[in-house]
Simulated assay, not measured.
Amino acid sequence: MNEHTAGRHASRGLNRRGFLVATGAAAAGAALATTLPEKARAVAGTFRVPVEDVRHTRTWMAWPDSTAIWSGKLSGVQADIALIARTIATYEPVVMCANPGSAARARSLCGSTVTVISSIPVDDCWMRDTGPVFRTDGYGGLDTVGLNFNGWGNKQTHDRDALVAERIAAHVGVQFTRADLIGEGGAIEQDGAGTLMATRSSLVNRNRNPGMSERQLETAMCEAYGASKVIWFDGVYGQDITDDHVDATSRFLAPGEALVQMPVAADDDAFARDARRQYSTLSASTTAKGRAMDVMRLQGPDYNRIRSTNRDFLASYANFYLCNDAVISAQFGDRRADEAARATLQRLYPDRYIEQLNIDRLGTGGGGIHCVTQQQPVA
């Protein structure tokens, strides 16, 4: 859900569907604002969230159908979600969660290669943030952890989305545990070998975790992900609905390897400055095992050359999704930057197909391909 480095103007206000906040925040109430449910069981040191290039059993997605959230934009966003689902489905199974009243339209647009189910209701399409985080134990075991989604700090209605993680876990038939923090999947990146990265602006934030210190959050994050170290970035507070998720700026490629999407030299808004700081921080960091980080640059597009003129548009190549045998990324109409991003991703993933999709309608909501997908790894 990032969001992030994409900011065209530092003072642009909330993106990632900033236009919906007025319609949705009142309905969000105070759900999960102060008290977390008790954990189902302790699993620290047993299960961990693997790095995202492992093989998947399937991809989970969610079908948007709210005209209140997507006022005047819904049909275009649905078309983009369907395009993403159909593309991924050529490489691995895709399960789309849709409300009963919109399941038929989802099936019509997604086609027969995508499985649409209506038993898990949703409010919106951001499965990265609402879905369960799957963990493996290396011995054929699979379980899930839920991050207690609260609408990015009660900025959007989320009565259904708050239950998606637990309901998917029940559908799959695996153990579900609630983390001791409030957050979203897009807020935390993992390398699968003990190291996490995240922005303080998103998690060390009273709209998610009031009264929790950074140290307490580190402990909760590491327990949930099976990790032992967090690399923190300052982030950007209050200028997009996610408070600057990490997954549109910085991504892990493997243990000790990461990339950062860099802005063009002329960009100097809050998100561009944040991206440069993330690169500097990562370059000076070590992994949980003490290895120096190898940090690569992924050049972002020039906002003066992309197709969209929407001020909240997210133009993040870094918000790509890894599925079996492919990298699903976006392209934005800056042809030179689009081709350079493709070449970079092909170099990083030489054994995978690189799919670049035009998802401009989804991008006007401040999100990208990684934001609307959630992988279920092979146990």
Score class of each variant (00 low, 15 high):
Met1Trp: 07
Glu3His: 06
Thr5Ile: 11
Ala6Thr: 13
Gly7Thr: 10
Ala10Thr: 15
Leu14Phe: 14
Arg16Lys: 04
Gly18Asp: 07
Gly18Tyr: 02
Val21Tyr: 14
Val21Thr: 13
Gly24His: 08
Gly24Val: 02
Ala28Met: 11
Ala31Gln: 15
Leu32Gln: 05
Ala33Ser: 14
Thr34Lys: 15
Ala40Trp: 11
Arg41Asn: 09
Arg41Met: 09
Val43Met: 05
Ala44Asn: 05
Gly45Pro: 04
Arg48Glu: 02
Pro50Gly: 13
Val54Phe: 04
Thr57Lys: 14
Met61Glu: 02
Ala62Val: 05
Asp65Trp: 04
Ile69Val: 04
Trp70Asp: 04
Ser71Val: 07
Lys73Ala: 12
Lys73Met: 15
Lys73Ser: 11
Leu74His: 06
Gly76Trp: 11
Val77Tyr: 09
Val77Phe: 13
Asp80Ser: 07
Ala82Phe: 11
Ile84Leu: 14
Thr87Arg: 14
Thr87Pro: 10
Ile88Phe: 00
Ala89Asn: 06
Ala89Ile: 07
Tyr91Gly: 02
Pro93Cys: 04
Val95Ile: 15
Val95Asp: 01
Ser102Ala: 15
Ala106Trp: 01
Arg107Ser: 11
Arg107Gly: 11
Ser112Val: 03
Ser112Asp: 08
Thr113Arg: 10
Val116His: 05
Ser119Ala: 13
Ser119Phe: 05
Val122Cys: 14
Cys125Asn: 12
Trp126Gly: 12
Met127Leu: 15
Arg128Phe: 04
Gly138Ala: 01
Gly138Glu: 01
Gly140Thr: 06
Gly140Ile: 11
Gly140Met: 11
Thr144Pro: 06
Val145Asp: 03
Asn148Glu: 01
Gln156Lys: 10
Gln156Arg: 12
Thr157Trp: 11
Asp159Arg: 09
Arg160Tyr: 12
Val164Ile: 15
Arg167Ser: 07
Val172Trp: 06
Val174Pro: 00
Gln175His: 13
Phe176Tyr: 14
Ala179Leu: 12
Asp180Leu: 10
Asp180Gly: 15
Ile182His: 08
Gly183Ser: 10
Gly185Met: 05
Gly194Pro: 09
Arg200Pro: 01
Ser201Pro: 00
Asn209Ser: 00
Glu214Val: 12
Glu223Val: 09
Glu223Cys: 08
Gly226Ile: 06
Ser228Pro: 05
Ser228Ala: 12
Ile231Tyr: 02
Asp234His: 13
Val236Glu: 00
Gln239Gly: 01
Asp240Phe: 07
Asp243Gln: 01
His245Met: 06
Ser250Phe: 11
Ser250Val: 12
Glu257Leu: 10
Met262Ser: 12
Pro263Ala: 10
Ala265Ile: 08
Phe271Gly: 03
Arg273Ala: 01
Arg276Asp: 03
Ser280Phe: 03
Ala284Glu: 07
Thr286Pro: 06
Ala288Lys: 12
Gly290Val: 03
Arg291Trp: 10
Asp294Trp: 07
Val295Trp: 12
Arg297Glu: 11
Leu298Tyr: 03
Leu298Asp: 07
Leu298Glu: 02
Gln299Asp: 10
Gln299Trp: 05
Arg305Cys: 09
Thr309Ala: 08
Phe313Glu: 05
Asn319Ile: 03
Tyr321Gln: 14
Tyr321Ala: 10
Cys323Gly: 15
Cys323His: 04
Asp325Ala: 05
Ala337Thr: 08
Asp338Phe: 06
Ala340Asp: 03
Ala340Cys: 00
Ala340Arg: 07
Leu345Arg: 05
Leu348Val: 07
Asp351His: 12
Ile354Gly: 14
Gln356Ala: 05
Ile359Asp: 04
Gly363Arg: 04
Gly365Lys: 03
Ile369Ser: 04
Val372Cys: 13
Gln374His: 10
